[in-house]
Nucleic acid binder design. Sequence first.
DNA 1: TTTGGTATTGCAACTCAGTTGTAGTAAATT
DNA 2: AATTTACTACAACTGAGTTGCAATACCAAA
Lengths: 126, 126
Amino acid sequence: MGIIRKTQSVEVLLAEFKSTTEAVSAIALIKRLDSKLNKTTVYRVLDKLEDDGVLHSFLDKNGIKWYAKCNACTCSKHFDAHPHFQCLSCGKVDCVVIDVHIPNIPNREVVVSQVLIQGKCEDCFV
Amino acid sequence: MGIIRKTQSVEVLLAEFKSTTEAVSAIALIKRLDSKLNKTTVYRVLDKLEDDGVLHSFLDKNGIKWYAKCNACTCSKHFDAHPHFQCLSCGKVDCVVIDVHIPNIPNREVVVSQVLIQGKCEDCFV
DNA sequence: TTTGGTATTGCAACTCAGTTGTAGTAAATT
DNA sequence: AATTTACTACAACTGAGTTGCAATACCAAA
């Protein structure tokens, strides 16, 4: 289910992530690209870009989906405890370049770990 | 916004958590108690029980809300990295009694951390 | 134990992020 | 250029969670 064709939609979306390492919510992208792309297309292309390892996704504190081209992970290895930081003041989300160690748990197989840290970001931290 | 009255709805919901320390999704409760309680009531009572520190809530990998009366945390202290484990096979979620250390991040204030671990639970682990 | 204030409940209608079906369109292959 | 097939847009849908409001149940004071 990877990307097969280099379509306009794909290029438009890739351009959104080219300049920043910050995470963007799917909704924000849909609103921002409203004149260019259809909502369904945005969801489907993001999905494929994730399958292709270009982006990775996660849910924020409200269950909203965010995507990011992370600067730290190799995108073949973000099944690790890859932490994301969401600012409680401005809502901004980004990838945090720290390693959170998830210990093994007896009689369980740990496959993926998601860590969402909430607090005040660099801009909102007084 | 805590609980003021010991109503039937409150007792019915408390009973659901009395016998287990496993987490239950709001939806599961709504379906299970369909004959007894209204959907809205379930959501509202759960909300208050959380405010009162009786339950705590978190979102699973699908953005679905779960509640649990955790065995480990004091419920005045689950603002820590309190990990939850969701089984990828059976979907069951429970509280894991391990401490995941979230380091401080320069120029940021960490308020809450959520850790969701996904894998195979004790029952599904072969 | 009645009365009355008010927290709580049930219902219906709503919100809104995300999904699905489908007919039409655009990209690659020949 | 023709053909194949992936992709896109649109509209309609899904489903978890919310909101407004009238009716009801709880509690306390009389």
